[in-house]
């Protein structure tokens, strides 16, 4: 049996193990909630679980080397990464969960690959995981940027009209009308 077949045959198991690992790492608040994430399969009634499912599926598929594009994997991981970016955890923990697939692979696939001398394809799979984590890192950073920007923009927007009025009446830097097109939106 070669590596793609291993990936295919163990799909359900591996996804379950990885998902469990993610749940186990949800911060301290999650005490006693093991039953929660599976309680509803509805993507709107239980969005958190749906995000993890979507991410797990895409992550696994991409690591397995299935035909996919960066855009597709990125889109599938996006909600998951964004949720973790606003949960109370360090960045390493937020994204480190993706790496939890590694020990699972090493335990299940590596021995077989080593036995059959097919280490190259195994290493390639691990490298794909590395790339995906870097991709997720980009998304994570972008999400944090968005948040920081949202804070600033919110304060600005809250007083948007007052600021204009103050400028117009207080002799501040002149603004000719509000030409939204020239404002950084």
């Amino acid at each position: 049996m070669n590596l793609p077949e291993f990936f295919r045959d163990n799909r359900e198991d591996m996804l379950r193990l990885w998902t469990d690992a993610v749940y186990a790492g949800i911060p301290f608040e999650a005490k006693g909630l093991s039953g929660l994430p599976g309680t509803a399969a509805d993507p709107f009634a239980n969005p958190g679980a749906d995000m993890i499912r979507e991410a797990a599926d895409a992550l696994y598929g991409a690591v397995a080397g299935e035909e996919t594009t960066v855009a597709d994997v990125g889109a599938a991981l996006e909600r998951f990464v964004k949720l973790r970016a606003v949960q109370r955890m360090t960045p390493s923990r937020a994204l480190g969960v993706l790496y939890l697939l590694k020990p699972l692979m090493r335990e299940r696939f590596l021995p077989h690959c080593a036995a059959s001398g097919d280490l190259d394809s195994y290493l390639a799979a691990e490298s794909r995981l590395d790339s995906l984590v870097l991709l997720a890192f980009d998304m994570y950073t972008a999400a944090r940027e968005t948040l920081a920007e949202a804070r600033v923009r919110e304060i600005r927007d809250r007083h948007a009209q007052i600021t204009r009025w103050a400028r117009a009446s207080g002799g501040g830097p002149p603004v000719a009308g509000r030409d939204k097109k020239h404002q950084a939106r």
Binding site: G25, P27, S92, R93, G96, L100, K102
Partner: peptide, 10 residues
């Protein structure tokens, strides 16, 4: 990575 992730409060 596992250790990093495990550094959450128990």
């Amino acid at each position: 990575p596992q250790e990093l992730i495990a550094t959450r409060p128990p």
